[in-house]
Design a protein around this nucleic acid. Structure first.
Lengths: 333, 333
DNA sequence: TTCTGCTGCCGGAACGTTCCGGCAAGTTTC
DNA sequence: GAAACTTGCCGGAACGTTCCGGCAGCAGAA
């Protein structure tokens, strides 16, 4: 068995008692001075702060949370869909960054195995909850304050929801395709287990109805393989009376997957998820930038407001997304 | 301010005292019975366990960790390189899963901003530490037990290291390319700030020296854009006396990026990182499967062994990786 | 004067857990 | 039959923090 020293002070931990003793005050006064609670003179407060700084005092989280009946940690769940991992990775980093700003830690919750115990957290962020996911269901049932990114595709909603206007944005994208010469745009989209995919699907049908265009949708599974997506694209692009002249791909990674095929067919191409891959494709692919990092930060922010009572349960916030026009939707001439 | 109830028991928290009272024993006996410590008769142990189960007793982590001077949490740092996010995402999930198995939580540490306080963790896992990363440096300096995936490209090493035999695997890959008809294989690889890239570079040069082949290497930055990578490939594939007949891409995502170009040139193509994209490319790309999820699990496992004293500081473990042969390296005829 | 209020500080309890030491009662040893 | 040991259980202290209530000292009001 080996000894590891904690930080600089190897010998003995510096607690609030150490600080109090050194500053010549009681532990209560020391605590009040550092926390800003109670009644402490300005002079004393400064003294204590200086001593704490000098000794490198770090409050013991376990003790504090034991006393305050909180954990200082929020839980984060994201579906383990690796094909969309770039989006989720950014989302996760956004949550972590915002949490750090509030001096909170973030604990990851996987869908992997059944959890033995409820997570030790003060609240939860659910990234893109899938309808029917048992882990999500059980997390929603804990009664902990919860924020979801995108609505939960079920009756019950999280205490806070951060969502984006996917359908209107898709309308803009379709209008853009139209102005680039497309008259028969098609959509490849996953099933309705995620609210995001459902919104896109609905938005597409609405737009088609409004414009009098025959909708051409191909559904693929949520974690579709490249082969599945290429097959869908192949069907849509097959020359003939039903052939389409523009392809909008919802699933992340799908657009790059079918890019060569679409180029060969001379059709336009757009993706509903921006990523390094679409940006760097040849030609670069017009995409909807979901700004996942900011979405994650926004979810965390809302959760903290719920925890502090600054926001009411039932609060919803719109997270702005952006349309990135690129060469893949340049008008053909 | 709103009230949230914790789990099923809304009214009052069920502590070990509740369990003890209900089971008709003292809190010490209840604790011993549940923890398996002390001396408790089999009969009593069963009674207590049954009562705890019935009441849905969950030990308070803060209290336990306060008492035991630990946190029940490990910290995890991965470089925020989104182009390789699929690899890191799997790695992260591997760590989380293994930690959950040991009833540990995982807190993410980003390179984002300077941390106000040292992380409240019992140990650290560093995924692919980059030489010169200030966050990694500061984490290494905390004195906490640390495991790194791949060696740290500096003098000091983590207490535990999980690494893979990248150079020998690259030799196998190059041999395979040779047997498929390649006589002039080239390598696109990032700089030596990561031990992984450095190993590949070294391995390539060794192989070339052993086979009497002129090495053709193109360095790109660690988070290279598609354009940068395509430029490198273009140079290597330019027809002429220096043109290569096979391309090995180290950076994740690079192979899919240059796939069309390589196919056009009639050269073979391989990637040093497997992913959904390489698997699903057309044609599928021969890749080295780094098995990131298992790598993450292995790092966490080693960390727990270090924490419990079952492993000595300085322990190194080899993580097996695999070569996935696919159509992109079929012999041309 | 006496009452009231304010300021600055402090002692002690509590959060829920683990674990050291102790104590009866029963069992073995000499 | 006393000493020594074992078994099964328990009380109490400790981990480091926050916060309730209290207590002097002083000032202004009645």
């Amino acid at each position: 068995m080996h000894q590891y020293h904690q930080g600089v002070q190897a010998d003995e931990p510096v607690t609030i008692l150490t600080v109090a003793r050194e500053a010549g005050v009681s532990k209560t006064t020391a605590s009040d001075a550092l926390r800003g609670s109670g009644r402490v003179s300005e002079r004393t407060r400064e003294t204590v702060a200086r001593v704490a700084e000098r000794l490198g005092y770090v409050p013991n989280g376990s003790a504090r949370h034991l006393r305050k009946a909180s954990t200082g940690t929020i839980g984060l769940h994201v579906p383990e869909v690796l094909t969309r991992s770039s989006y989720y990775m950014s989302f996760v980093f956004g949550v972590v960054e915002q949490a750090a700003r509030h001096d909170y830690d973030v604990t990851l919750i996987t869908s992997g195995q059944r959890r033995a115990r409820p997570p030790r957290v003060d609240g939860l962020v659910l990234g893109d909850p899938l309808g029917g996911d048992p882990v999500v269901e059980s997390l929603m049932a804990t009664g902990l304050p919860t924020v979801s990114c995108e609505r939960f595709p079920g009756a019950r909603q999280a205490d806070g929801v951060v969502w984006s206007e996917h359908a209107p944005m898709l309308h803009r994208l379709l209008d853009h395709l139209g102005s680039a010469g497309s008259t028969r745009p098609a959509l490849i989209v996953a099933g309705d287990e995620s609210d995001w995919a459902a919104s896109l699907h609905r938005g597409y049908l609405e737009w088609c109805a409004a414009k009098g265009v025959t909708p051409r949708v191909r559904r693929v599974s949520f974690d579709a393989t490249g082969e599945e997506i290429r097959a869908a694209a192949r069907t849509l692009l097959t020359p003939g009376p039903g052939a389409v002249d523009a392809l909008v791909c919802a699933p992340a990674g799908a657009a790059t997957e079918v890019a060569p095929m679409v180029r060969e067919a001379g059709a336009l191409l757009a993706s509903c998820v921006d990523s390094a891959a679409t940006r760097m494709a040849d030609p670069p692919i017009t995409s909807i930038d979901l700004r996942p990092r900011e979405a994650g930060a926004s979810c965390a922010q809302l959760l903290f407001e719920l925890l502090s009572g600054a926001a009411e349960p039932g609060t919803e916030r719109v997270h702005p997304i952006e349309l990135e026009l690129r060469a893949s939707t340049r008008p053909r001439h």
